[in-house]
Write a protein that binds this DNA or RNA. Structure first.
Length: 868
RNA sequence: GGGCGCGUAGCUCAGUUGGCUAGAGCACCUCGUUUACACCGAGGGAGUCGGGGGUUCGAGUCCCUCCGCGCCCACCA
């Protein structure tokens, strides 16, 4: 037991490093792989990118997961928070490419092997940053067992999954339209594409009929793709054009002829009603092309330039340059009928930010329908529960409409696809084929392919390891909404397929924390905060200025507890705006606990560590009752993933019930052994219950509390003692509080000296012992002598303030009249309600009775006042 | 175009299956050097619950409609 430092404030910066050390030394973050997954508790961290630095989302999610893990650990479960990082293909490769550029070289120049070596080197250097930042938050991840999605063992798991799925016919290679990202020089999946609104020019271009009988006019925003047109389509029912079906047109700028086809995809009322069909460069046209067995031509290559064989004079131009040149030529030929600005949504790469170029290319795909069905089932039958519930609908909808997943990426950083080619032969396997002349597929797998195996590949799968035995399936997966499909759904599918079990039983989708103005937190917008700046102090970005226009100043060093508390308190089932006040509230809470502990310790000395004795007084019974309720509610809120309520409930208990009332109520009491033991018990239980939320301050204080040995983080949380629930004491102290508040309000209004004890008479029906407490906190002195000068309504009656210098009769009369008016109004309301035959007849009896009781109470109070 | 969600005090948000005089934190005002805490305590003002309509004895809560905002999904050139 160590003495609490003699200061008036909790100083996180002094405490946190020491406590972190103690936790790490104790090794509580690293449970032995024993027992079964059912009796143990596990959370797999959403692996941050190795390139990443901690942002608000990590901090919030870190606070959530650590709260859960600590809570379960303190309830006796072997708890493992699986830690690791993701190799993050595109993001990491881009970083290192940038680095190479500063060195005046490039990926292509150094070659694949050297490039990969450089990425590893880079990873060794910067990859640890984010893990250290989690430690700073107080996160008790399993630092002794850190994984990386490119660890040798993990690679083996990924390759095995690929080979198995290939053998089972779910993975195949196909020539198909993909989202080509010119930024990364790779295909990307549908989920990595985001739509942005763009204003383009919509060109109407005339295609002359070959029989010279006229022309059809098509509308397009991408004239440069016309070199790959293979048809013109009209709606088969379109009276204007249906007679043209089967005829041909001459494709301008070329010598080719296109057939006019009918397809009901074409909207008659949009554009010109004629649609140029370019299967090689538009996903819809691709579908139409396959329906009509059209040729699939490529006009724009993977480098974003017009290709040689179709390009003619435009070959080698970038797509946009080609557009200008072609439109100019079309104008010269008089074929541009109309040009108008046109705003529409266009796909962009989520990663590189460049406009997607739909291209046909040879890629690896995974068929998803067969995997999706069981993943839908487990959510429908509750084996996987998604919180909040509304998200499960999104999950199911997406899976029910799932499409093949393009899993190959034209990158060098990642899991290289285990496929080798030699002439017409293909070898798919965990090891290279025998013989000469084989060449391995240069592509790597989509990063999410390996992420999908995270909950079991981190535990050693496919080997039947003790870790897998002890911690799979995991319990909770906590993440942001945007990767429900990218990651969560795929983990469920892969988990079911390869382990035969769900990867986790609960998915918690947390809020996204936005800037105070409602924008996304983002570094480039200047709307982001580095959580470490909140913890340790740092610049406050302008959008976070306390008052608009004022200099934003600096964040004070709030400390990790305050930040954790603040983030949990502001979180919700939907997106929320960042609120520095909540963090401040957390800081105040840590300080309050610190001082409350100092106070209690000054009272209890070496209190016995035993259970509290039978409580002696009304307030003792009350605080034990409230403490029990607090424990129960905290558990309940955590079980429901309601972190905000849990955090705010903690604040309320500590501030209101414990400090404002209980500690004030006992201040004047002599602290005997019983009271000391009780105080120590209440303090220990409070610290233990609060610990998962604000681990540093509670751990620090725990070291000074009698009867609390070793580390709080490793201690067993005291179970809520239901026998201590005491409705009678609850009601009793509630009445005391109401009475004290009423008298205080009266005193304040009457400008009575705050320190003065006023003579008064209690004419109210209150539980035994209440009178002493009221007198103590409201500064009254009960006496039989004296004339009443003022009356204060309290539960069960009133307090008569007796005449003294402190009371001004005129002011009293005015206040009494005001209260009488208020009462009359409320009585009229209640009277009207009870006079309503419908109400009395149809409302539940209890409601009617309560209303009657209330009316009675008000009438009594009115009578008392009018009489006085 | 579909789907989900939101609009409650100056700000950020709670308000369980409709039912005590609609709440909290912060901000604001007043008072207080009561030895745990001024990063504190006590007290106070402040809301046509986005608008309109409906169901009901009773609506912040349920239904319809309109307005404003956010997110997700979707192939209109």
């Amino acid at each position: 037991m160590t003495a609490i430092p003699d200061r008036k404030r909790f100083e996180p910066s002094e405490v946190e490093p020491r406590i972190t050390r103690a936790w790490l030394d104790a090794g509580l973050h690293h449970p032995q792989p024993q027992g079964t997954a059912a009796e143990n508790y596990a959370i797999a961290i959403p692996p941050p990118n190795v390139t990443g630095a901690l942002h608000m989302g990590h901090a919030l999610n870190g606070a959530i997961q650590d709260t859960l893990v600590r809570w379960q650990r303190m309830h006796g479960r072997r708890a493992k928070w699986i830690l690791g990082t993701d190799h993050a293909g595109i993001a990491t490769q881009t970083q290192v490419e940038k680095l190479l550029k500063t060195e005046g070289t490039s990926r292509e120049e150094v070659g694949r092997d050297e490039f990969t070596r450089r990425v590893w080197e880079w990873r060794e250097k910067y990859g640890g940053t984010i893990v250290g930042q989690f430690e700073r938050l107080g996160a008790t991840c399993d630092y002794d067992d850190e994984r990386f999605t490119l660890d040798e063992q993990y690679v083996q798991a990924v390759l095995k999954v690929f080979v198995d799925l290939y053998d089972q016919g779910l993975i195949y290679r196909d020539l198909y339209m993909v989202n080509w990202d010119p930024g990364s020089g790779s295909a990307i999946s549908d989920l990595e594409v985001e739509d942005r609104e763009v204003t383009d020019t919509l060109y109407s271009i005339a295609y002359p009929l070959t029989d010279g009988s006229g022309e059809v006019v098509v509308a397009t925003v991408r004239p440069e793709t016309m070199l790959a047109d293979t048809a013109v389509a009209v709606h088969p029912e379109d009276e204007r054009f249906k007679h043209l079906i089967g005829k041909t047109v001459k494709l301008p700028l070329t010598d080719r002829e296109l057939t006019i086809i009918g397809d009901d995809y074409v909207k008659m009322d949009f554009g010109t009603g004629c649609l140029k069909i370019t299967p090689g460069h538009d996903p819809n046209d691709f579908e139409i092309g396959r329906r009509h067995q059209l040729e699939e031509l490529t006009a724009i290559g993977e480098d974003g330039r017009i290709v040689e064989d179709l390009g003619g004079p435009y070959a080698g131009l970038k797509a946009l340059e080609a557009r200008e040149a072609m439109v100019a030529d079309l104008r010269t030929q008089g074929l541009v009928r109309e040009e108008e600005p046109y705003t529409h949504t266009v796909p962009f790469s989520h990663r590189s930010g460049e406009r997607i170029e739909p291209l046909i290319s040879l890629q690896w795909f995974m068929r998803m329908d067969e995997l999706a069905a069981p993943a839908i089932q487990v959510v429908k039958d509750g084996r996987v529960r998604i919180h909040p519930e509304t998200q499960s609908r999104r999950y199911v909808d997406w899976l029910e409409n799932i499409r093949p997943w393009c899993i190959s990426r034209q990158l060098w950083w990642g899991h290289q696809i285990p496929v080798w080619y030699r002439d017409q032969e293909t070898h798919v396997g965990l090891t290279p084929p025998e013989g000469e002349g084989w060449e391995r597929d240069p592509d790597v797998l989509d990063t999410w392919f390996s992420s999908a195996l995270w909950p079991f590949a981190t535990l050693g799968w496919p080997d039947e390891t003790p870790e897998l035995q002890a911690f799979y399936p995991t319990d909770v997966l906590s993440t942001a909404r945007d990767i429900l499909f990218l990651w969560v759904a795929r983990m469920v599918m892969m988990g079911l397929r390869f382990t035969g079990d769900v990867p986790f039983s609960d998915v918690y989708i947390h809020s996204v924390i936005q800037a105070p103005d409602g924008r996304r937190m983002s570094k480039s917008l200047g709307t982001g905060i580095n959580p470490l700046d909140l913890i340790e102090g740092g610049p406050r970005p302008p959008v976070f200025a306390k008052k608009e226009g004022e200099h934003p100043g600096e964040f004070p060093a709030y400390g990790a507890d305050a930040v954790r508390f603040g983030l949990l308190a502001m979180s919700s089932t939907q997106d929320v705006r960042f609120s520095e006040e909540r963090v401040q509230q957390g800081q105040q809470l840590t300080n309050k606990l610190f001082n409350a502990t100092r106070f209690v310790l000054s009272k209890v000395g070496e209190a016995p560590a035993e259970h509290p004795p039978a409580p002696l007084t009304l307030e003792d019974r009350w605080i034990l009752s409230r403490l029990t309720a607090f424990q129960e509610q905290t558990d309940e809120h955590l079980r429901a993933f309601d972190f905000s309520k849990a955090a705010l409930g903690l604040y309320d208990f500590v501030y209101a019930e414990l400090c404002d009332w209980y500690l004030e109520l006992i201040k004047a009491r002599e602290v005997d052994e019983d009271l000391a033991a009780l105080l120590a018990h209440v303090l220990r239980t409070t610290l233990a219950t609060a610990h998962p939320f604000i681990p540093f301050v509670t751990e620090d204080l725990w070291g000074s509390v009698p009867g609390a040995d070793a580390l709080l983080a490793a201690a067993e949380a005291p179970a809520a003692d239901l026998a201590r629930r005491d409705p009678e004491a609850d009601a009793g102290i509630e009445a005391v509080i109401a009475a004290v508040q009423a008298v205080r309000a009266w005193r304040d209004g009457a400008a009575v000296k705050p320190g003065a004890f006023l003579p008064a008479r209690l004419r109210a029906d209150l539980p035994a012992g209440a009178d002493i407490l009221i007198a103590r906190l409201a500064r009254l002195e009960w006496t039989a002598e004296g004339e009443p000068a003022a009356a204060v309504s309290v539960p069960g009656g009133l307090v008569e303030i007796l005449a003294s210098d402190a009371v001004d009769p005129a002011a009293e009369a005015a206040k009494r009249d005001a209260r009488i008016a208020e009462l009359r109004k409320e009585i009229a309301r209640a009277d009207g309600k009870l006079g309503n035959a419908g109400f009395v007849a149809k409302a539940p009896e209890a409601v009617v009775a309560a209303e009657r009781e209330k009316l009675e109470r008000l009438r009594t109070e009115l009578a008392e006042l009018e009489q006085g």
